[in-house]
Design a protein around this nucleic acid. Structure first.
Length: 636
RNA sequence: GCCACUUUAGCUCAGCUGGCUAGAGCAGCUGAUUUGUAAUCAGCAGGUCGUUGGUUCGAGUCCGACAAGUGGCUCCA
């Protein structure tokens, strides 16, 4: 029997050898650190005999797969602990996740589980972990598995078993706990040294809101206590960057139910940054041949019936407003308005592509439980644009849009992942013909390949009228949000009967690209705030420079410096108070102002300033010319 | 919308098992202080403890309903 290793080596082994024995044959150290092995990409236990040729890998804590096995095993340990603490608990799913694991359970009638119970669960897990119970895999017949869970009244696992009816069914036992499981564990529970229950949440069985809601218990474990402490420290640090917290501290925006749930109010400083972003993108658009348009915030309901948005998204829009026999809707998207602009005059192939851009504010009735800071709101502004082009221009325009979006993320040095969002299986969820969908998806994929996009494909993530290229960024606490988007649309041109006269003097249908590089100003701001942890780059910072005279004797000189800087277009703040300079510095730092200029008697004498850079510290004395040079280099 | 948790001054938080006029720091205001790289001192003012029912001689504290927020789930043009 042959095993091929990641380095390309192929070695001959005796049939039935275990992963652990293979690891030992390589090195004792490796065998000690090994958590699981991979056979042809499947994670399995070190103890399982290998009986056929395969690609072989050893996974340690350093590997994603090693962590997966570790956390998968930890979820079994959590389940074992829960079973001891709540004997009648019923189990659903319990998978590893990006950071840790969870288990979905149904607690016995009347049992509530809250944060107060975490310590108890952790203690029980630790107690069970110390027993070093081995994770042992066994085969199960369908009947035995079925009756095992029937006896326990667990409808969830029975539901799962039905799905595996025609496959090999296995279970895993450790200590007194048995679980339906496909395998992939670490050798024994004793390796789990540091344990933390993180949170509880509700989760529908199989993710379907028609099903029963279970209690999802999130936890994380590590082989060493120090690693858990480091994880908790990083988590705390991340929470400090939360845009909701910084938005309050830095006076950027607020959200209050007195104005309306999910309706952010922008304060002067937040507005300043937002406007800067708008200017930045507007310059790029104008350079790329876009034209700006403005459309109203409400629109006739018929417009959305034509577009098809109304039936598809009826439940997530604010109810129509009735006025004089007519119904109007708060604009949930800008598309139909722009389509009417296209229709406003006959279009020739010579006019195309036409690119209409607008910072369009839209209102959507998001479920109350879904609202979150600036990330998910009920009123937001898209940096929207629609491009109307001939089919043969589509590719080039798509590439342009993707490159513009990439420029945004590059400008702010943000890490982004790219998803090609294609349609899924669901009926009634998509408009348009199968042929146009295939065409659109094919082109999207061709474009992505042509420009070497590093992408993944998301089935069922398309919009109802076409496939998308979505740009996804993580927030401070690891949640993923879609920002930029580029969408292909063959449907709306049909619905709105858009056309252009071609060079053949015949009527043709244009193709539409919907695109928003930021996605929404609100969501982009949330990510931007967290990305910079409130330490905005010089060109974006609402206050750029604070001027801190040490005593009143330097006031006059300080004012002179301020007017020079103001005349050069910089945003300054002069702190005239009779406070100690230490305090002035502290407050300037807390306000995260990029530069502080300390001015005392020496600086007045030498006609210079002492420069302190935020997050860096004192960078020494500089002449006026030097600071102007520095500030110029940081502007854009 | 669903599950769990949270809600005390503009902000951050104390307030144990229900018991006199609900505390602190920061911010604000007033005054003093003129100060060299992260917070000078003193005084004043600020709260019907999210709202609303109930239990009780007595509720910030216990119970219910509602609202908002947080973490998830469903959803996400």
């Amino acid at each position: 029997m042959k095993l091929s290793f990641p380095d390309g080596q192929i070695k001959e082994y005796e049939n039935g050898i275990t992963g652990l024995e293979v690891a030992k044959s390589i090195s004792e150290g490796l065998a000690r650190n090994a958590l699981a092995i991979g056979l042809d990409g499947v994670i399995i236990e070190l103890s399982r005999p290998i009986t056929q040729d395969a690609e072989f890998k050893i996974f340690t804590w350093k590997d994603i797969e090693g962590k997966e096995a570790f956390w998968h095993s930890s979820s079994h340990l959590l389940a074992e602990a829960l079973q001891e603490l709540y004997p009648d608990v019923k189990f659903g799913f319990g998978p590893p996740i990006e950071n840790g694991f969870y288990y979905d359970v149904e607690l016995p009638e009347g049992t509530k589980l809250g944060e107060d119970d975490f310590a108890k669960i952790e203690a029980k897990m630790k107690e069970l972990a110390k027993k070093k119970s081995q994770f042992v895999m066994h085969d199960w017949t369908y009947e035995d598995a079925k009756s095992y869970y029937q006896n326990r009244g667990n409808e969830f696992k029975q539901d799962l078993i039905e799905e595996f009816k025609d496959q090999k069914i296995t279970y895993c036992t450790q200590g007194n706990f048995t679980d339906l499981c496909k395998g992939g564990h670490i050798p024994h529970t004793g390796l789990i040294k540091a344990i933390k229950i993180l949170s509880v949440a509700g989760a529908y069985w199989r993710g379907n809101s028609d099903n029963k809601m279970l209690t999802r218990i999130y936890g994380i474990t590590f082989p060493k206590q120090a690693e858990l402490e480091e994880f908790m420290r990083i988590r705390e640090e991340a929470e400090k960057r939360d845009h909701r917290k910084l938005g309050k501290e830095l006076n950027l925006f607020f959200i209050t139910p007195e104005v309306g749930q999910g309706l952010p109010v922008w304060l002067p400083k937040g507005t300043f940054i937002r406007r800067k972003l708008e200017k930045f993108i507007t310059e790029e658009l104008l350079a790329r041949g876009y034209q700006e348009v403005i459309t109203p915030h409400i629109g006739n309901l018929n417009l959305y019936k034509t577009s098809g948005h109304y039936p598809y998204y009826k439940d997530s829009q604010f109810a129509p407003i009735s006025v004089e026999e007519e119904e109007y809707m708060l604009k949930p998207m800008n598309c139909p308005h722009h389509h009417k602009i296209y229709q406003n005059e006959p279009r020739s192939y010579k006019d195309l592509p036409l690119r209409f851009a607008e910072f369009g504010t839209v209102y959507r009735y998001e479920q109350s439980g879904e609202l979150s800071g600036l990330s998910r709101v009920r009123g937001f502004t898209q940096d929207d644009a629609h491009i109307y082009c001939m089919p043969e221009q589509l590719k080039e325009e798509l590439i342009n849009c993707v490159e513009l979006t990439q420029l945004v993320f590059k400008t702010f040095d943000m890490e982004v992942s790219t998803r090609l969002s294609f349609r899924g299986e669901e009926e009634n969820k998509y408009a348009g013909t199968a042929e146009s969908w295939e065409e659109a998806e094919r082109i999207v994929k061709e474009v992505a390949d042509e420009i070497n996009l590093d992408y993944f494909i998301g089935i069922g993530e398309a919009s109802f009228y076409g496939p998308k290229i979505d740009f996804i960024v993580k927030d401070a606490i690891g949640r993923k949000w879609q920002l930029g988007t580029v969408q292909v649309d063959y449907v709306m041109p049909e619905r709105f009967d858009l056309e252009y006269i071609g060079s053949d003097n015949n009527k043709h249908r244009p193709v539409i690209i919907h695109r928003a590089p930021f996605g929404s100003m609100e969501r982009f701001m949330s990510i931007l705030i967290e990305h910079f942890a409130g330490n905005f780059p010089f060109w974006l910072a609402p206050d750029q420079i604070s001027i801190l005279p040490i005593t009143d004797n330097q006031l006059e000189y300080a004012k002179k410096i301020q007017s020079i800087l103001n005349d050069n277009g910089y945003r300054t703040k002069l702190d005239e108070r009779a406070e100690k300079v230490n305090r002035k510095i502290a407050e300037s730092e807390q306000a995260k102002i990029p530069f502080s200029l300390v001015i005392g008697a020496k600086e007045v004498e030498a006609e210079n300033v002492s420069v302190r850079e935020h997050t860096v510290g004192d960078i020494g004395k500089k002449s006026i010319e030097e600071i102007l040079e520095i500030f110029k280099s940081l502007s854009r």
